[in-house]
């Protein structure tokens, strides 16, 4: 009954949060796992695009998203957020980058702050792990995927444009037919009315 609204306590992330956290093999136990992820989150904030094994990328993504969303939510004057930033970012100059560069960049985003791609495996024998590329949105690098949207002359864009035109023409024809039908009715009424009055 008196349960607090969870979304008021923790910001809702735009990415999928795994119900069960991955245990990365580490002799130092849970702390070693977190140390691994700290390295990855720091690298992501520093380089904005990194290539790594898929499980680590997927796991680190959640922590990076949470860190940025807390930064946006509470700002740099909030003690807990600053402590979290201090913990997750191993290189301390990146704390400035988080609050001065990334928070203004992502302030008005309604989508996730990071993007995860599946990458091809390198042709190295023995390396059987699936790879991923993790990047921050709004980075300065060229896009990884081919842009098929902006060029109107690509074959599928031409086909879709023509399909749109054809659809509109049928709709206009329908509307015109409706108007004609109404006008014909009106004419009939006009013709009938004088005969009644006469």
């Amino acid at each position: 009954m008196n349960q607090a609204d969870v979304s008021k306590l923790v910001s809702r992330l735009k990415t999928k949060v795994n119900p069960r956290l991955r245990k990365f093999r580490s002799p130092e136990g849970p702390e070693g796992r977190l140390n691994k992820l700290r390295k990855t989150v720091t690298a992501l904030i520093k380089h904005e695009r990194i290539e790594l094994n898929y499980p680590r990328a997927d796991e680190a993504r959640m922590y990076a998203e949470r860190l940025i969303s807390d930064g946006i939510r509470y700002g740099d004057c909030h003690k807990t957020t600053m402590e979290m930033a201090d913990y997750w970012l191993v290189e301390k100059q990146l704390v400035h980058k988080l609050f001065k560069v990334l928070v203004p960049r992502f302030q008005d985003y309604s989508i996730s702050y990071t993007k995860l791609y599946r990458a091809p495996r390198p042709p190295v024998p023995g390396d059987n792990y699936s790879k991923a590329i993790l990047e921050l949105r709004g980075h300065p690098y060229p896009s990884l995927t081919v842009d098929t949207h902006s060029n109107k002359n690509l074959i599928h864009n031409i086909l879709l444009e023509e399909a749109k035109k054809a659809y509109r023409n049928t709709k206009y024809a329908e509307i015109a037919a409706k108007i004609d039908a109404v006008e014909e009715k009106l004419k009939d009424i006009e013709i009938e009315e004088p005969s009644k009055s006469a």
Binding site: V146, T148, N151, N153, L154, I155, I158
Partner: peptide, 9 residues
Amino acid sequence: HIQQPNLVN
């Protein structure tokens, strides 16, 4: 994916 692919299409 060239800029003017009409001929290719």
